[in-house]
Protein backbone atom coordinates (compact mmCIF):
# COMPACT_ATOMS: atom_id res chain seq x y z
CA UNK A 1 0.00 0.00 0.00
CA UNK A 2 1.53 3.31 -1.05
CA UNK A 3 1.79 6.21 1.35
CA UNK A 4 1.42 9.52 -0.36
CA UNK A 5 2.97 12.50 1.34
CA UNK A 6 1.67 15.73 0.08
CA UNK A 7 4.76 17.71 -0.98
CA UNK A 8 3.71 21.08 0.37
CA UNK A 9 1.77 20.03 3.43
CA UNK A 10 4.47 21.30 5.80
CA UNK A 11 4.34 24.88 4.64
CA UNK A 12 1.03 25.75 6.13
CA UNK A 13 -1.51 24.74 8.69
CA UNK A 14 -4.20 24.21 6.14
CA UNK A 15 -5.50 20.71 5.94
CA UNK A 16 -4.63 18.43 3.07
CA UNK A 17 -7.83 18.97 1.21
CA UNK A 18 -7.42 22.72 1.04
CA UNK A 19 -3.92 22.24 -0.33
CA UNK A 20 -5.18 19.77 -2.87
CA UNK A 21 -7.78 22.29 -3.89
CA UNK A 22 -5.17 25.01 -4.35
CA UNK A 23 -3.04 22.74 -6.43
CA UNK A 24 -5.99 21.66 -8.51
CA UNK A 25 -6.65 25.25 -9.31
CA UNK A 26 -3.01 25.78 -10.15
CA UNK A 27 -2.48 22.71 -12.19
CA UNK A 28 -5.53 23.28 -14.27
CA UNK A 29 -4.97 26.98 -14.68
CA UNK A 30 -1.48 26.34 -16.03
CA UNK A 31 0.56 27.73 -13.17
CA UNK A 32 3.93 26.34 -12.16
CA UNK A 33 3.99 24.69 -8.75
CA UNK A 34 7.60 25.59 -8.12
CA UNK A 35 6.70 29.19 -7.48
CA UNK A 36 4.09 28.31 -4.89
CA UNK A 37 6.04 29.92 -2.05
CA UNK A 38 5.80 33.33 -3.68
CA UNK A 39 2.19 32.99 -4.76
CA UNK A 40 -0.34 35.32 -3.26
CA UNK A 41 -3.27 33.65 -1.52
CA UNK A 42 -6.67 35.26 -1.93
CA UNK A 43 -8.81 34.25 1.03
CA UNK A 44 -12.53 34.83 0.96
CA UNK A 45 -15.42 34.18 3.23
CA UNK A 46 -18.69 33.57 1.43
CA UNK A 47 -21.62 34.79 3.50
CA UNK A 48 -25.33 35.42 3.31
CA UNK A 49 -25.73 39.10 2.33
CA UNK A 50 -28.44 39.64 4.97
CA UNK A 51 -27.44 37.50 7.93
CA UNK A 52 -23.66 37.73 7.30
CA UNK A 53 -23.48 34.05 8.27
CA UNK A 54 -21.11 31.79 6.30
CA UNK A 55 -22.70 29.60 3.66
CA UNK A 56 -21.44 25.98 3.63
CA UNK A 57 -20.76 24.04 0.45
CA UNK A 58 -20.94 26.95 -1.95
CA UNK A 59 -19.87 25.79 -5.38
CA UNK A 60 -17.14 27.83 -7.07
CA UNK A 61 -16.26 26.92 -10.63
CA UNK A 62 -14.23 28.34 -13.47
CA UNK A 63 -15.69 27.68 -16.88
CA UNK A 64 -12.54 28.10 -18.98
CA UNK A 65 -10.10 26.30 -16.70
CA UNK A 66 -12.79 23.68 -16.07
CA UNK A 67 -12.20 23.49 -12.33
CA UNK A 68 -14.58 23.46 -9.40
CA UNK A 69 -14.42 23.43 -5.62
CA UNK A 70 -16.62 23.97 -2.57
CA UNK A 71 -16.41 26.05 0.52
CA UNK A 72 -16.33 24.00 3.70
CA UNK A 73 -18.81 24.45 6.56
CA UNK A 74 -17.10 27.74 7.48
CA UNK A 75 -17.76 29.33 4.10
CA UNK A 76 -14.02 29.84 3.53
CA UNK A 77 -12.47 29.86 0.09
CA UNK A 78 -8.86 30.38 -1.00
CA UNK A 79 -7.71 31.00 -4.54
CA UNK A 80 -3.97 31.21 -5.15
CA UNK A 81 -2.40 33.64 -7.62
CA UNK A 82 -2.69 37.18 -8.84
CA UNK A 83 -6.37 37.38 -9.65
CA UNK A 84 -5.90 40.60 -11.58
CA UNK A 85 -4.09 38.64 -14.29
CA UNK A 86 -6.57 35.75 -14.59
CA UNK A 87 -8.79 35.55 -17.65
CA UNK A 88 -11.68 33.36 -16.70
CA UNK A 89 -15.28 33.49 -15.55
CA UNK A 90 -16.08 32.43 -12.01
CA UNK A 91 -19.46 31.00 -11.03
CA UNK A 92 -20.40 31.12 -7.34
CA UNK A 93 -23.59 29.23 -6.62
CA UNK A 94 -25.53 27.86 -3.67
CA UNK A 95 -29.06 26.55 -3.33
CA UNK A 96 -31.60 29.37 -2.83
CA UNK A 97 -29.07 32.09 -3.66
CA UNK A 98 -28.61 34.09 -6.84
CA UNK A 99 -25.64 32.83 -8.85
CA UNK A 100 -22.69 35.20 -9.17
CA UNK A 101 -21.18 35.06 -12.64
CA UNK A 102 -18.25 37.44 -13.00
CA UNK A 103 -14.70 37.77 -14.34
CA UNK A 104 -12.48 36.19 -11.72
CA UNK A 105 -10.31 39.30 -11.65
CA UNK A 106 -13.26 41.16 -10.15
CA UNK A 107 -12.64 39.20 -6.91
CA UNK A 108 -9.19 40.79 -6.60
CA UNK A 109 -8.88 42.66 -3.32
CA UNK A 110 -12.09 41.29 -1.80
CA UNK A 111 -12.17 39.34 1.44
CA UNK A 112 -15.90 38.69 1.67
CA UNK A 113 -18.30 37.56 -1.01
CA UNK A 114 -21.94 38.15 -0.22
CA UNK A 115 -24.61 36.03 -1.83
CA UNK A 116 -28.14 37.37 -2.06
CA UNK A 117 -31.11 35.09 -1.42
CA UNK A 118 -33.14 34.24 -4.50
CA UNK A 119 -36.64 35.69 -4.36
CA UNK A 120 -37.99 32.75 -6.36
CA UNK A 121 -40.30 30.38 -4.54
CA UNK A 122 -41.94 27.41 -6.25
CA UNK A 123 -45.67 27.87 -6.82
CA UNK A 124 -48.00 26.28 -4.29
CA UNK A 125 -49.57 23.22 -5.84
CA UNK A 126 -52.54 21.26 -4.58
CA UNK A 127 -51.35 17.69 -4.22
CA UNK A 128 -53.12 15.02 -6.22
CA UNK A 129 -54.51 12.40 -3.91
CA UNK A 130 -55.89 9.34 -5.65
CA UNK A 131 -53.89 7.07 -3.34
CA UNK A 132 -51.81 5.55 -6.12
CA UNK A 133 -48.11 4.84 -5.61
CA UNK A 134 -45.80 4.42 -8.59
CA UNK A 135 -42.09 3.71 -8.81
CA UNK A 136 -40.59 5.62 -11.73
CA UNK A 137 -37.45 4.33 -13.45
CA UNK A 138 -37.61 1.14 -11.44
CA UNK A 139 -34.48 -0.98 -11.55
CA UNK A 140 -32.78 -3.95 -10.00
CA UNK A 141 -29.66 -2.70 -8.27
CA UNK A 142 -27.90 -5.97 -8.97
CA UNK A 143 -27.89 -5.12 -12.69
CA UNK A 144 -25.97 -1.89 -12.13
CA UNK A 145 -22.33 -2.23 -13.11
CA UNK A 146 -21.51 1.04 -14.91
CA UNK A 147 -20.92 4.29 -13.07
CA UNK A 148 -20.72 8.00 -13.77
CA UNK A 149 -18.45 10.30 -11.82
CA UNK A 150 -14.91 9.23 -12.72
CA UNK A 151 -12.49 10.76 -15.22
CA UNK A 152 -11.55 8.29 -17.93
CA UNK A 153 -9.22 8.34 -20.90
CA UNK A 154 -12.27 9.09 -23.05
CA UNK A 155 -13.50 12.15 -21.14
CA UNK A 156 -13.10 14.16 -17.97
CA UNK A 157 -16.04 14.16 -15.63
CA UNK A 158 -16.71 17.86 -15.12
CA UNK A 159 -20.18 18.20 -13.65
CA UNK A 160 -21.44 19.91 -10.52
CA UNK A 161 -24.70 18.00 -10.54
CA UNK A 162 -26.23 15.15 -12.48
CA UNK A 163 -29.97 14.81 -12.97
CA UNK A 164 -32.34 12.03 -14.00
CA UNK A 165 -35.53 12.95 -15.84
CA UNK A 166 -38.84 11.46 -14.73
CA UNK A 167 -42.30 11.50 -16.26
CA UNK A 168 -45.22 11.33 -13.88
CA UNK A 169 -48.82 10.59 -14.99
CA UNK A 170 -50.46 13.59 -13.29
CA UNK A 171 -49.67 17.07 -11.98
CA UNK A 172 -49.39 17.49 -8.22
CA UNK A 173 -47.83 14.11 -7.39
CA UNK A 174 -45.91 13.84 -4.11
CA UNK A 175 -42.37 12.56 -4.07
CA UNK A 176 -42.08 9.89 -1.37
CA UNK A 177 -38.78 8.15 -1.85
CA UNK A 178 -35.65 8.19 -3.98
CA UNK A 179 -33.43 5.15 -4.52
CA UNK A 180 -29.91 5.65 -5.79
CA UNK A 181 -27.46 2.94 -6.72
CA UNK A 182 -23.84 3.96 -6.30
CA UNK A 183 -20.49 2.22 -6.43
CA UNK A 184 -19.84 0.57 -3.09
CA UNK A 185 -18.41 -2.78 -2.24
CA UNK A 186 -19.42 -3.23 1.36
CA UNK A 187 -21.49 -6.32 1.89
CA UNK A 188 -20.54 -7.74 -1.49
CA UNK A 189 -20.92 -11.47 -1.18
CA UNK A 190 -18.60 -13.96 -2.82
CA UNK A 191 -18.44 -17.67 -2.46
CA UNK A 192 -15.42 -19.90 -2.47
CA UNK A 193 -15.37 -23.32 -4.03
CA UNK A 194 -15.25 -24.72 -0.54
CA UNK A 195 -18.63 -23.12 0.09
CA UNK A 196 -17.29 -20.38 2.34
CA UNK A 197 -19.25 -17.16 2.11
CA UNK A 198 -16.89 -14.20 1.85
CA UNK A 199 -18.40 -10.85 2.70
CA UNK A 200 -16.63 -7.57 2.08
CA UNK A 201 -16.95 -6.03 5.49
CA UNK A 202 -13.46 -4.82 6.20
CA UNK A 203 -13.24 -1.60 8.14
CA UNK A 204 -11.17 0.06 5.43
CA UNK A 205 -13.97 -0.18 2.92
CA UNK A 206 -16.29 1.66 5.28
CA UNK A 207 -13.94 4.62 5.31
CA UNK A 208 -13.52 4.46 1.56
CA UNK A 209 -17.22 4.47 0.89
CA UNK A 210 -18.34 7.29 3.16
CA UNK A 211 -20.25 9.89 1.23
CA UNK A 212 -22.33 13.00 1.72
CA UNK A 213 -24.24 14.74 -1.04
CA UNK A 214 -27.28 16.86 -1.66
CA UNK A 215 -30.43 16.09 -3.55
CA UNK A 216 -31.97 18.75 -5.77
CA UNK A 217 -35.38 18.70 -7.41
CA UNK A 218 -36.16 20.63 -10.59
CA UNK A 219 -39.03 21.27 -12.95
CA UNK A 220 -38.44 21.35 -16.70
CA UNK A 221 -36.86 24.24 -18.55
CA UNK A 222 -39.23 24.76 -21.51
CA UNK A 223 -36.40 26.16 -23.66
CA UNK A 224 -34.00 23.21 -23.33
CA UNK A 225 -36.17 20.34 -22.07
CA UNK A 226 -33.60 19.93 -19.30
CA UNK A 227 -33.73 20.84 -15.61
CA UNK A 228 -35.20 24.26 -14.89
CA UNK A 229 -36.10 25.85 -11.55
CA UNK A 230 -35.94 24.23 -8.13
CA UNK A 231 -39.29 22.77 -7.09
CA UNK A 232 -38.16 22.44 -3.51
CA UNK A 233 -36.08 24.97 -1.60
CA UNK A 234 -35.08 23.22 1.63
CA UNK A 235 -31.67 21.57 1.69
CA UNK A 236 -31.88 17.78 1.47
CA UNK A 237 -28.52 16.36 2.51
CA UNK A 238 -27.80 12.64 2.47
CA UNK A 239 -24.99 10.87 4.33
CA UNK A 240 -24.12 7.24 3.94
CA UNK A 241 -21.22 5.00 4.81
CA UNK A 242 -21.61 1.73 3.02
CA UNK A 243 -24.86 1.14 1.13
CA UNK A 244 -24.73 0.38 -2.54
CA UNK A 245 -28.44 0.97 -2.93
CA UNK A 246 -29.46 4.09 -1.00
CA UNK A 247 -33.09 4.61 -0.11
CA UNK A 248 -33.92 8.17 0.85
CA UNK A 249 -37.27 8.67 2.49
CA UNK A 250 -38.70 12.05 1.48
CA UNK A 251 -42.06 11.84 3.23
CA UNK A 252 -41.12 14.47 5.79
CA UNK A 253 -40.32 17.03 3.08
CA UNK A 254 -43.70 17.05 1.27
CA UNK A 255 -42.22 17.65 -2.17
CA UNK A 256 -45.03 18.31 -4.65
CA UNK A 257 -44.23 17.97 -8.35
CA UNK A 258 -45.94 20.80 -10.22
CA UNK A 259 -45.91 19.33 -13.75
CA UNK A 260 -45.75 15.96 -15.45
CA UNK A 261 -42.00 16.04 -15.81
CA UNK A 262 -39.38 16.60 -13.15
CA UNK A 263 -35.74 15.98 -12.41
CA UNK A 264 -33.91 14.59 -9.39
CA UNK A 265 -30.27 15.68 -9.21
CA UNK A 266 -27.30 14.69 -7.10
CA UNK A 267 -25.16 17.68 -6.14
CA UNK A 268 -21.61 16.66 -5.27
CA UNK A 269 -20.01 18.13 -2.18
CA UNK A 270 -16.30 18.54 -2.85
CA UNK A 271 -15.12 17.65 0.64
CA UNK A 272 -12.19 15.57 1.83
CA UNK A 273 -14.41 12.68 2.89
CA UNK A 274 -15.89 12.58 -0.58
CA UNK A 275 -12.60 12.90 -2.43
CA UNK A 276 -10.97 10.09 -4.37
CA UNK A 277 -8.77 9.73 -7.40
CA UNK A 278 -9.32 8.48 -10.89
CA UNK A 279 -6.58 6.18 -12.14
CA UNK A 280 -3.50 8.13 -11.05
CA UNK A 281 -3.03 9.98 -7.79
CA UNK A 282 -2.74 13.52 -8.98
CA UNK A 283 -4.60 16.72 -8.28
CA UNK A 284 -6.02 16.76 -11.79
CA UNK A 285 -7.58 13.39 -11.18
CA UNK A 286 -9.56 14.27 -8.07
CA UNK A 287 -13.09 12.94 -8.15
CA UNK A 288 -15.88 13.01 -5.61
CA UNK A 289 -18.23 10.39 -4.27
CA UNK A 290 -20.80 9.16 -4.83
CA UNK A 291 -20.14 7.56 -8.20
CA UNK A 292 -23.62 7.13 -9.64
CA UNK A 293 -24.85 3.93 -11.19
CA UNK A 294 -26.06 3.74 -14.78
CA UNK A 295 -28.86 1.45 -15.82
CA UNK A 296 -27.61 -1.09 -18.33
CA UNK A 297 -30.77 -0.80 -20.42
CA UNK A 298 -31.36 1.43 -23.43
CA UNK A 299 -34.73 3.13 -23.51
CA UNK A 300 -34.33 5.05 -26.76
CA UNK A 301 -34.40 8.45 -25.05
CA UNK A 302 -31.51 9.94 -23.13
CA UNK A 303 -32.80 11.13 -19.74
CA UNK A 304 -29.57 12.15 -18.00
CA UNK A 305 -28.43 15.75 -17.70
CA UNK A 306 -25.25 17.19 -16.24
CA UNK A 307 -24.66 20.69 -14.87
CA UNK A 308 -21.37 21.93 -16.28
CA UNK A 309 -18.84 24.15 -14.50
CA UNK A 310 -20.25 26.96 -16.65
CA UNK A 311 -23.69 26.31 -15.06
CA UNK A 312 -25.38 24.98 -18.16
CA UNK A 313 -27.40 21.79 -18.18
CA UNK A 314 -26.27 19.44 -20.94
CA UNK A 315 -27.40 15.94 -21.92
CA UNK A 316 -24.92 13.40 -20.53
CA UNK A 317 -23.90 11.46 -23.61
CA UNK A 318 -20.90 9.52 -22.32
CA UNK A 319 -22.62 6.14 -22.45
CA UNK A 320 -24.81 6.94 -25.46
CA UNK A 321 -26.39 5.21 -27.24
CA UNK A 322 -25.95 2.20 -24.95
CA UNK A 323 -27.29 3.47 -21.65
CA UNK A 324 -29.82 6.24 -21.23
CA UNK A 325 -30.75 6.44 -17.52
CA UNK A 326 -29.14 6.85 -14.15
CA UNK A 327 -29.80 4.25 -11.48
CA UNK A 328 -32.13 6.62 -9.66
CA UNK A 329 -35.73 5.66 -9.09
CA UNK A 330 -38.46 7.84 -7.63
CA UNK A 331 -41.53 6.67 -5.74
CA UNK A 332 -44.40 9.11 -6.25
CA UNK A 333 -47.88 9.18 -4.80
CA UNK A 334 -50.70 10.76 -6.78
Amino acid sequence: MAVYYFPFSDISNYNGLMMIKYLTFFALMGWGLTSLAQIKMNNFRIVDAETKLPIPYVSISLSRANVAMNTEQDGLLSIPGDLATFRDTVFIAAQNYLIIKAPIRSLNGLDTIRLRKSAYRPPLITPSNTGTDTVLNKFNWRDVCFFAGVHTENARFSYLQMAQEFDVPVQGATLKQISICRLAHMGLVRMSADGDVIIMNQEKYVQLELTKFRLRFYDVDPRTGGPGRDIYTKVVEVSNKDDRNLKINLKEYSIIIPGKKFFVAVEWLRTFDNAGYAEYRSEQNLIYKPTLGMLPYATGKLKIWGLTYGHKWQPYTYYSPDWTDLAISATVKW
Binding site: M1, Y4, Y5, F6, N15, V150, F272, R281
Partner: peptide
Protein backbone atom coordinates in the same frame (compact mmCIF):
# COMPACT_ATOMS: atom_id res chain seq x y z
CA UNK B 1 -14.73 -1.65 -15.29
CA UNK B 2 -13.99 0.43 -12.19
CA UNK B 3 -11.59 -1.18 -9.80
CA UNK B 4 -11.38 0.20 -6.29
CA UNK B 5 -8.06 0.54 -4.56
CA UNK B 6 -7.12 2.38 -1.40
CA UNK B 7 -4.09 4.53 -0.71
CA UNK B 8 -3.05 6.48 2.29
CA UNK B 9 -2.84 10.21 1.82
CA UNK B 10 -2.20 13.13 4.12
CA UNK B 11 -5.60 14.29 5.22
CA UNK B 12 -4.52 16.88 7.75
CA UNK B 13 -1.42 18.64 8.99
Amino acid sequence: VLQLDADLTVSKT
